[in-house]
Design a protein around this nucleic acid. Sequence first.
DNA 1: GCCAACGTTGGC
DNA 2: GCCAACGTTGGC
Length: 156
Amino acid sequence: MSYWLIKSEPEVFSFADLQAAARKTTYWDGVRNYQARNTLRDAMKKGDRCFFYHSNAEPSGIAGICEVVREGYPDHTAFDPKDPHYDPKSTPDAPTWYMVDVKAVRAFPRLISLAELRAARALQGMVLLQKGSRLSVLPVSRREWETICALAGVAG
DNA sequence: GCCAACGTTGGC
DNA sequence: GCCAACGTTGGC
């Protein structure tokens, strides 16, 4: 099993929104970055676990855990001219952008803030914390996963 | 709201 | 293929 971190602005879609969704599941649409696309299309597998990160929030941080329940498939919002993430270069025959489905597993008892992540010695190498890192879908090592679950007081 | 950092676009 | 201009992300 692999571990990931996915970002969302909570004012747009929060972890609570995922928990409230039908079957606690949603499709993770709107990623328009090639590196993140490759992760969604090729690397994320059913059963993989993801931290759900609130970006542009007060405070930003990890709100909970979700699980990949459907592997990469074309992001249909790219085909819709009325969608804010519309991309005319992507077509159903030759899709540019991909998404996965994720399901909420559990909320953290408290949000683990970005400041708390930065303060943890074991997390210095996290992709999330590297200067200039803006990826919205990024890998988390097993050690980082377990460190953060311990901070949150939940089982890994 | 500011702005640093980054990715993409397009002229040449 | 270079690189300036532009748009976006996201912390602060």
